[in-house]
Amino acid sequence: MQSGNETAAQLATPKASPGVSRHAILLQGDSRYRFRKAFSGIMAAAVAACTVFGVTILWIILGYVLVRGLPALDLAFFTERPMPYGEVGGGVAPAILGSLYLIAVACVIGLPLAVLAAIYLSEYSHGRFGDAVRFVIDLLAGLPSIVVGVFVWTLIVINTGSFSGLAGAVALAIIMIPIVARTVEAILNLVPNSMREASLALGVPMWKTILRVVLPAAKSGIITGVVLAMARAGGETAPLLMTTLGNSFFNFDLMQPMAALPVQIYNYAVAPYADWHTKAWGSALVLIALIGALSLLTRWAVRGQKLGES
């Protein structure tokens, strides 16, 4: 490479520096270049190692859940209620049903609101108000779930004097709303304008166009967004601990405490009994399987439909 003085010299300076053939540069460069090249290789290895670490840690965690959880699984685990310590057998059936029930009620409470807001943002709002709503949705999405738990606990549990399934469902709904609203708005924005114009040009009013053309076109994306939110809600623990509390018995009365899988895992895990720890791993395996099945089911349900996927 050229030494400093030459580089700064006048316009007619030849480019190759004294003593070094141009071709030598092409071939291997100087010692400093060999260092640069080695450093580049080291950094490539380092970022690859980061990736390997991130991927490995996931499979380690999943592997533990699988290996430690499998021994807990038998028929009774899926059909019976949890037994007090010392009694043989027992299962997490109330927790599985409770989780599904809570998510369903949460959907009933939260989805209409979230979808309406998403339609408003995508189809009607173009001004500051829409930006404000988007901003608030982002803030809600960033709210720690324990804060949602405290809110619902204060609002419902303390006021009614009882932990209840309803309180849990409300908490889950609040967690789902921003997720659904955001994904659905994004999906509706992907529906090409030409589809709306084609319908409007036929004299179909805007609201019918949205209901009959826009929403059906975005169907698969909307389903994906909803399932995403359901999966997220299904794994929530802290807000449920503060609202539904958990229950060892079957209960479908929304005004009573209700069992939920994540809460069951927590109760099993913090107890001092080895048998319960195994049950905690087993429940964790069931929870992961449920969440996984939910998303696989969606992928299957919306297969072949391009819009809004991935």
């Binding site: 141009r22 071709h23 540069i25 092409l26 071939l27 291997q28 460069g29 270049y33 090249k37």
Partner: peptide, 20 residues
């Protein structure tokens, strides 16, 4: 070829080619 050196020769470093 850059003059008489093939820049696609196996012993040529592409980074150095771009430098020149």
């Amino acid at each position: 070829f850059l003059e008489d050196q093939d820049i696609y020769a196996s012993n040529v470093d592409p980074v150095q080619v771009r430098r020149v």
